[in-house]
């Protein structure tokens, strides 16, 4: 068998952890895009979340406070994007890119004194008997609480979009903002709220890296996770559960290829480790081309500016 000496339970456990930060960021961006806004600043919001979460966790001694701080930090940066694109009507793609650059630089600046510090650790959730189940205990029931809350969040977003009134308004705004406006919905208010939610989720994803996954603060530590989250949203055709499947698939490929290498299995790892990034590039090209939108189930008003007079 190709898996050789790799323990599948460990593999599943590792991929759930590897997938969590990108899944958090992706589920936030999914809501933003469902509201018709393309925010390419996910990477910037993630890294700001990573640094603010880290600083607050270190100073308060509480990982929980760190995560709350990270959500607020990501949200604060997203408000800048909201101001630019919703109030000042700037181009969303350019503003999003600027947000990423700004976030990377700002995080390096405010995080300078925090390099080389160990943050308070987040304990693994004690699930009692569940953790003792053979295979499943090690694979699924041996994680920190954020992994489970992230899955719960995916479920909540799915329910919100599919069944809640607010979710339907959000989708209407994203599909056709003129019609939504005609019906009396506040397009900009909905979009600003969606952008804030996206920022908070990206911030949480970043904090998962700096507080649990790594756990340290170093400059530029997200290394492209935000871009992968963006691609995941498209890959998932803007559907929450598919985003989760995509994140686990991506996390799985990353973890699997590392484990195959460690186990000494002779496979062309260079292609395997390249594949997630190739898919990311491909998907980002498709999303920006515009033509493939319909077939991809993209929100109709995605990346189109809205002005009430138009």
């Amino acid at each position: 068998m190709i898996l050789g000496s790799i323990n599948p339970a460990v593999l599943v456990a590792a991929l759930m952890v590897a997938a969590t930060p990108i899944l958090l960021a992706a589920i936030g961006e999914l809501i933003v895009e469902k509201a018709g806004v393309l925010n390419l600043g996910v990477e910037g919001m993630m890294i700001i979340g990573a640094v603010t979460g880290f600083i607050i966790a270190v100073n308060s001694g509480s990982p929980l406070m760190g995560f709350i701080g990270a959500a607020l930090g990501g949200m604060a940066l997203s408000l800048l994007f909201a101001l630019l694109t919703q109030a000042l009507m700037t181009n969303q793609v350019a503003s999003g890119l600027a947000l990423t650059l700004f976030g990377l630089g700002l995080s390096a600046l405010i995080g300078q004194k925090y390099v080389g510090i160990t943050p308070p650790r987040t304990p693994k959730l004690d699930l009692g008997l569940l953790s003792d189940i053979p295979f499943l205990g090690r694979a699924v029931f041996s994680h920190d609480i954020v992994v489970y809350l992230t899955i719960a969040l995916v479920g909540a977003v799915w329910w919100f979009l599919k069944y809640s009134r607010a979710g339907m308004i959000l989708r209407a705004v994203g599909e056709n903002h003129d019609a939504a406006h005609g019906l009396g919905y506040h397009v900009k208010r909905v979009r600003v709220l969606a952008i804030m939610f996206g920022g908070a989720c990206a911030g949480l994803g970043g904090a998962y890296l700096s507080l649990i996954r790594v756990p340290q603060w170093t400059e530029g530590m997200t290394v492209g996770a935000g871009w992968i989250a963006l691609a995941l949203v498209v890959f998932a055709s803007w559907r929450p559960w598919r985003a989760m499947a995509g994140a686990y698939l991506f996390g799985g490929v990353v973890v699997l290829q590392l484990n195959l290498q460690a186990a000494g299995v002779r496979i062309p790892v260079e292609y395997l480790s390249m594949s997630p990034y190739l898919i990311t590039i491909l998907v980002l090209v498709i999303i920006s081309s515009g033509k493939a939108r319909g077939s991809l189930n993209a929100p109709g008003s995605l990346n189109r500016p809205f002005h009430a007079s138009s």
């Binding site: 996954r213 790594v214 340290q216 170093t218 530590m221 290394v223 996770a225 990353v254 590392l258 290498q261």
Partner: peptide, 9 residues
């Protein structure tokens, strides 16, 4: 330089 990837490795 990729802290998460290096940790997983």
């Amino acid at each position: 330089y990729d802290p998460a990837q290096e940790a997983a490795a």
